[in-house]
Amino acid sequence: MRKKILVVDDDQRILNLYMRLFEAVGLSMFDIVTMPDPYLATEYVLREKVDVVILDLRMPKVNGQKFYEALKEYNPELKVIVSSVYPIDKQRKMVPDATGYYDKSCGPIQLVEKVANVLVNCN
């Protein structure tokens, strides 16, 4: 069964990059869905089965922390990798119990590794 990864980030350039990245590294066996709008993303999580969410903590319309809590409330089993340009210790302070943390400036290959780890542990 194909796993579904949802990327929520307000920056379209980042979304484009991740799209192409996951395609390139051969994770195309997973469905990648990108959402710039957190509200739409919430609706999507309610509607569809999502395995991993890559969540930007700093978005203009909604506080990343609140959004994380809302996601967890809908689906406590959901794996969420918090992603931001903030350093990881700061991210951990903001969202203490996320499945993973990713510093955007560390390069996208690291993100792919983190996602793969989460999915392997999942199985």
Partner: peptide
């Protein structure tokens, strides 16, 4: 820091992506 890190993130991402095989 945030505003400057975002373009740097993209630059790094694109560079890493471009250096992948194939």
């Amino acid at each position: 820091a945030h505003e400057l890190k975002t373009p740097l993130t993209i630059i790094r991402g694109e560079t890493e992506l471009a250096s992948l095989e194939g």
